[in-house]
Amino acid sequence: MYLRKVEGPRAVTLPDGRILTRADLPSPDTERWVASRKARLLLAITVGLVSRDYAIETYGLSEEELQSWERLARRHGPEGLRVTTIQKYRQP
């Protein structure tokens, strides 16, 4: 069996006992970013499964987009990552 060489760990154990692997991440050709995919990618970055640079390069994100996801998740939780409710959380 051949495993492709990757930087960083292949799997991490979360504080609640769950295991997050690279296979759990969204596909690199993801175009439709639903809240659950955003949350999973942010979690992977937070626990050190992937780096910010890897996420930006692999998924074609901008630094500003990733920062806005982090800010919304920090302020409003997973609900803040939903596009349909983003207007509710924006400041006038």
Rank of each mutant, 00 (worst) to 15 (best):
A55P: 11
E70M: 13
I56V: 14
S51E: 07
W33L: 02
V47Y: 14
L25A: 00
A23Y: 03
L61E: 10
V50H: 00
A44T: 03
E64Q: 15
G17E: 10
E65T: 15
D16T: 08
L72C: 03
R22W: 10
L41G: 01
D24Q: 09
T30D: 10
V34M: 10
E31V: 11
I56C: 08
E63P: 03
E57N: 13
I19F: 04
E64G: 15
R32V: 14
S36F: 02
R22A: 07
G48E: 02
T30F: 07
L41P: 09
L49S: 04
A55H: 01
K38C: 11
A55L: 01
E57I: 04
G60K: 07
S62C: 08
V47Q: 06
T30C: 12
L41V: 13
S36G: 11
Y54C: 03
D29C: 14
L43N: 01
L42W: 02
D24G: 01
L20Q: 10
R37T: 09
E70C: 05
V34D: 11
L20P: 06
D24M: 07
D16I: 00
R40T: 15
V50Y: 01
L25C: 00
T58I: 09
S36T: 13
L49F: 03
W69Q: 10
I56K: 10
A39R: 13
R71K: 15
S51M: 02
S36K: 12
E57T: 09
Q67M: 05
L42T: 08
L49H: 09
L66W: 05
